[in-house]
Design a binder for these strands. Structure first.
Length: 820
RNA sequence: GCCGAAGUGGCGGAACUGGCAGACGCGCACGACUCAAACUCGUGUGCCCUCGGGCAUGUGGGUUCGAUUCCCACCUUCGGCACCA
């Protein structure tokens, strides 16, 4: 009998740092161009350096790392980089609250998080780390801005923008959330401000962004992006006021044009002042003021009663020259379409409600075939359905199918409008009135206008000596020297732009900076680009569906058109993980006190156990609540792995061939399943498969399989399957069983298909679809033999009684169903 | 209101292409080891039962020899959008 005390104890706290240092010293995770191998660029969304790596980071990154490791063992040359999204508001808030410079706060946090990230044992190539707040990084962020500016993809305009009074900065439309339109970061309701702001022309790419045909992205993300962009086809139609001013409207129902009985402008519409008559001026002003106050919170709540005011002016319906009143009402949004609508109360519910409230005429112009003739006086609601056109002058009688096209053709022929496409997507507002971001590299010159900073002068570095005064203005505006410069063109007195860029700008191209973070001739080394791009698998949270993931696609396409990048899409495959909730099933937060700290977990259990549990305990894309006792299962599993491999069996009797054949079958069946699961992101069944196999191995070990050739193969395959999930223990056991360093550069084992074949089947015997018996039979059984065996079953006979079966269904090798 | 996702034991979850529902793990119960406890190991664990079986995958229908899986309607939860013209 072996002496049990001679078996070393599994001490993850000892072996994990040991291997991490070894791997780093040997550079086994360094990714270098190697044209002999197929490349694989695996990317996990870069973290914000908040100062503490939380369990959500681990949950997102561990399976991504495991899959990258798996791909490497499959023979790919894998790039799996990491960096930090280091600009942004929290650093500045810390500066104000705790009197620490944002740079210092950020880089201190990065140091801490780098240590925490390393404790995961991920295969990050740290030589490629990129930090968006480094001048060497944001030099290129600024360079991209200038390229966009020079090619009319960036522009400045005064616009009503969403402004967070708490964060003291503007927000992109998608950073404003909920019915009360609050700031995504601090939940303060936003206000509207008219400001000169910088925008990127994302709308130019709206149509192309709707095309997902070249990429393997989750349906959910495609849906979210499609809804966000919200493309609608219709017509833009020009209405003239009696005074001759043009009011352009967009409509998706040009077939209802003859039913337009009034017009509505948004209260902020620029023409309102111009068209309003003297009589109505006071009422209009009052309404505008009221709308401006309301706007902040309630205006977009759909169930409000309609309100509005007549401007006193009239427009002419271009198709029938009818004189129709122009109203203003807050149910028309300045931010959508043209901020003006033609109102067709008979066929639009909102217009209907408005017309009823203010006694405006309702004219039916569409007659759906299945309805009786509609009398406008009797209507209780608008009729939005399609139908033949009626009361529509020359187009009366046009059937539903032709109504759209013929009415568009009609307005086009009469010069009143044209076919048009409208999007909900808006241009991306990138200006931020904050310090801790990449300065927008523009100089405002009284003579030359907006002048881009010459490339040689990049980066426009952030000054370190800044003060935070409670004025609500960016410290850059208050800096005595930074702001005032000479114009690069005329050398006259000029001023720098003091807005910085939205941090989503930095994260739109970080996957390119990873390729060559120290390269100083260009944002990236073209050689590296040509080898590694595009990203093969991108992983991260679904919350970025309508922000980062739209921006980065836009960015790539814009750069493609500027001959900077190649191909239509930056990331071929996208997968999203879910969220780890607290044990109370609530979202983890400090205030709830339900936060699980990964640092504590690795101190207690070791990284491998935490990795294994995170991959096992939930479906990755869904997430689940944390369970403190659940992790004990992973602890036991790895301990069992340890002893299964290292502890001799002490069984004397010779093992049977059947046991070995059975073991080998289980090993190769598991290998096939695990391989498939890695490809399809089913991480939880990878671990459960390995647990099941370990149990089988221990059964075989108990009857003498230990030490045989089959056992050796089982161990070799088992450890290699384990390596991506739990890299440290796999390496340790690989070394302790005398196998060559390093397990992480071993080939993924090949499935022996012959070995996976079963010799026996369990035939399921049903009577009328209900399970009545199970019979073990050789896999070679014929249909007749199987049916005969089923009929011979005692239990089946009990159910059969005197009856003769109507039909006997046979599913080869699986089941017999006897139908009475 | 519209769009999308998800509903399976006490819990997290598994189930290939329509074919044994509940793999794996947690928890729980009992047993072994121990002076004792923890650890570890073993056994059991959907519900009901007259021990033959019956009922069970959100609810109600349907298709089928057979449905967690396909179809229809509905309910609940979560996410997104929302007076979108």
């Amino acid at each position: 009998m072996p002496d049990p005390t001679s078996i070393p104890v599994y001490k993850p706290q000892e072996i994990e740092p040991k291997w991490q240092l070894q791997w780093e010293a040997d550079g086994i995770d360094q990714a270098n161009i190697d044209r002999k191998k197929p490349k694989f660029y695996a990317l996990t969304m870069l973290p914000y350096p908040s100062g503490d790596l939380h369990i959500g980071h681990w949950y997102a990154m561990t399976p991504s790392d495991a899959r990258a490791r798996y791909k490497r063992m499959r023979g790919f040359n894998v790039l799996f980089p990491i960096g930090f999204d280091a600009f942004g508001l929290p650093a500045e808030n810390a500066a104000i609250q705790r009197n620490i410079h944002p740079k210092q706060w950020t880089y201190r946090n990065i140091d801490k998080m780098r240590r925490q990230l390393k404790s995961m044992g991920a295969m990050f190539d740290w030589r490629r780390e990129a930090i968006s707040a480094d001048p060497e990084y944001y030099k290129w962020t600024q360079w991209f801005f200038i390229k966009f500016y020079e090619n009319d993809l960036a522009y400045q305009k005064e616009a009503p923008v969403d402004f967070c009074p708490n964060c003291n900065t503007t927000l992109a439309r998608e950073q404003v959330q909920g019915e009360d339109r609050h700031c995504e970061r601090c939940e303060t309701p936003v206000i509207k401000k008219n400001l000169e702001q910088w925008f990127f022309r994302t709308t130019r790419y709206a149509d192309e962004l709707l095309d997902f045909s070249g990429i393997d992205w989750p349906d959910q993300v495609q849906t979210l992006q499609t809804n966000w962009i919200n493309r609608s086809e219709g017509a833009s139609v020009n209405f003239k006021t009696e005074a001759g001013d043009d009011i352009e409207v967009f409509t998706t129902r040009p077939d209802t044009l003859w039913g337009a009985t009034f017009m509505v402008l948004a209260p902020e519409h620029p023409l309102v002042d111009q068209v309003t008559t003297q009589d109505q001026e006071q009422a209009v002003r009052a309404y505008q003021e009221q709308a401006q106050h309301m706007e902040d919170i309630h205006r977009e709540a759909a169930d409000r009663e309609k309100t509005g005011v007549f401007t006193g002016a009239y427009a002419l319906n271009p198709v029938n020259n009818q004189k129709i009143p122009i109203w203003i009402a807050d149910y028309v949004m300045m931010s959508y379409g043209t901020g003006a609508i033609m109102a067709v109360p008979a066929h639009d519910q909102r217009d209907f409600e408005f017309a009823r409230k203010f006694n405006l005429p309702i004219v039916v112009v569409i007659q759906p075939p299945e309805m009786e003739e509609i009398i406008s006086e009797d209507m209780e609601a608008a009729i939005p359905a399609a139908g033949a056109m009626v009361n529509s002058g020359p187009l009366s009688g046009t059937p539903a199918e032709e109504a759209f096209n013929r009415s568009v053709a009609y307005v086009e022929e009469h010069g009143a409008g044209k076919f048009a496409v409208n999007y909900r997507l808006r241009d991306w507002l990138i200006s931020r009135q904050r310090y801790w971001g990449a300065p927008i590299p523009i100089i405002h010159c009284p003579n030359c206008g907006r002048v881009p900073v010459p490339e040689n002068d990049l980066p426009v570095e952030l000054p370190d000596d800044v003060e935070w005064l409670p004025t609500g203005e960016s410290p850059l505006k208050l800096h005595p020297t930074w702001r005032f410069v000479c114009c690069p063109k005329c050398n006259g007195k000029a001023e720098r732009e003091t807005d910085t860029m939205d941090t989503f700008m930095c994260s739109s191209w970080y996957h390119l900076r990873y390729l060559s973070p120290t390269y100083d001739q260009y944002p990236f080394d073209p050689k590296e680009y040509d080898y590694w791009m595009p990203v093969d698998t991108y992983t991260g949270g679904i919350e970025h569906a309508t922000m980062h993931l739209i921006y980065t696609r836009f960015f790539h396409k814009a750069c493609r058109d500027l001959n900077i990048t190649k191909g239509d899409e930056p990331m071929l495959q996208l997968r999203n993980q879910g969220m780890v909730l607290g044990e109370d099933h609530e979202k983890m937060s400090k205030s709830r006190g339900n936060v699980i700290s990964p640092d504590d977990l690795i101190a207690t259990y070791g990284a491998d156990t935490v990795r294994a549990y995170l991959m096992f305990f939930a479906r990755w894309e869904l997430g689940a609540p944390w369970n403190s006792s659940g992790i004990e299962g992973s602890v036991r599993w790895l301990r069992k792995v340890w002893y299964t491999v290292l502890e001799p069996a002490g069984v004397e009797k010779p093992v049977s061939k059947g046991v070995l054949r059975n073991l080998r079958r289980k090993v190769h069946q598991t290998l096939a399943a695990v391989t498939n699961d890695f490809e399809t992101f089913n991480f939880n069944t990878i671990v459960s498969g390995l647990m099941t196999l370990l149990n089988e191995m221990n059964l075989a070990k108990a009857v003498g399989a230990y030490g045989t050739e089959t056992w050796q193969e089982a161990i070799s395959i088992y450890l290699r399957m384990l390596a991506p999930v739990c890299p440290h223990i796999a390496e340790e056991l690989w070394a302790r069983t005398g196998r060559p360093y390093t397990i992480h550069q071993q080939p993924w084992p090949e499935v022996d298909l012959d070995a996976t074949q079963e010799e026996m089947i369990t035939l399921i015997v049903q009577v009328n679809g209900k399970l009545r018996d199970r019979i073990a039979l050789p896999v070679t059984i014929s249909e007749e033999e199987a049916k005969a065996a089923a009929m011979a079953s005692e239990n089946v006979q009990n159910f059969l009684g005197q009856k003769t079966p109507k039909k006997i269904i046979y599913v080869s090798g699986r089941l017999v169903n006897i139908v009475l």
